[in-house]
Amino acid sequence: MDDQLISKYLDDTLTAIEKKEFDARMSSDPTFRKEVDAMQAVHRMLSQFSVQPAPHGLESRILAQISPRVNRMINGIRWILGVWALFTVVLLVLRFTGWVNFSDTLMGLDSDQLTGQINQYQTWFSVAISMSATLFFLYFSQSWIKKLARRPGKRT
């Protein structure tokens, strides 16, 4: 009960009657007064140190991330990655629909059984590697660039 009353006092939300009773209690009850003084000290500390200063250079680091130059760079990289991914997809479609026979066209070999078999394995392997590398790079490069841009500076 006392605690709630003290909280209301600190927040200046006591009614006129409550305030009168509160003041009377403060004059007559030293224990109550001591408790109020302590809570008031906490209240003052919280008010005085309500805000911590942000680290030096934080503002510049935030602004750097939204600057047109950084955004242009990120968009440029996205565009290159997009074209790369599209190229991979086109190659995959051509390869697996059989529209282009890579082993004959690229290597100029006759499609005898042995060479054809080897080429098939090689193509499968290179397609898998190329696709994984593309997706891997696509995913990590952007978060890496963003992390680099927002890296906190050394504090002096």
Binding site: V51, P53, A54, L63
Partner: peptide, 22 residues
């Protein structure tokens, strides 16, 4: 993306946001 407005906005609020995060 008005740079001056963004700068003022960040400057005005950065201590409060940082304090809450901290």
């Amino acid at each position: 993306r008005d740079e001056q407005i963004i700068r003022d906005f960040v400057r005005l609020h950065q201590n409060y946001v940082y304090t809450l995060c901290l």
